[in-house]
């Protein structure tokens, strides 16, 4: 298991939370909550070691598009980048739909 952390600057605040997915084989669980300061934090725990470059690319793009002040935690069981992006899109759907 590897733990990876990132910080991003944020512009938009959040009012609600979202929980998506399951830490099942090839899948991941995401928890998104409003961050108290104007920044975003990401904490990833993953079974698949050695993919830090790919995670960074995914979140650089995600936060460039959605500069939200979110506290994001991920429990990953070897999801592919495609699955990660799908789950992130679902999470945004929940956050924006509920707002």
């Amino acid at each position: 298991m590897e733990t990876i952390m990132y910080e991003y600057a944020a512009e938009r605040s959040l009012t609600n939370s979202a929980h998506i997915g399951v830490a099942a084989s090839g899948d991941l669980e995401l928890l998104l909550e409003p961050s108290e300061n104007r920044s975003a934090s990401v904490k990833i725990r993953t079974t698949a070691n050695g993919f830090e470059d790919i995670w960074k690319a995914v979140f650089d793009r995600f936060f460039a598009r959605y500069p939200i002040a979110v506290k994001l935690e991920i429990n990953d069981f070897g999801a592919t980048p495609g699955v990660v992006n799908l789950r992130l899109a679902q999470a945004m759907e929940v956050l924006e739909h509920d707002n």
């Binding site: 298991m1 929980h19 399951v22 830490a23 669980e29 725990r45 079974t47 429990n75 990953d76 069981f77």
Partner: peptide, 10 residues
Amino acid sequence: LPLQGIVPQS
């Protein structure tokens, strides 16, 4: 689980 290198779930 994390003590055994296994990712937990919330």
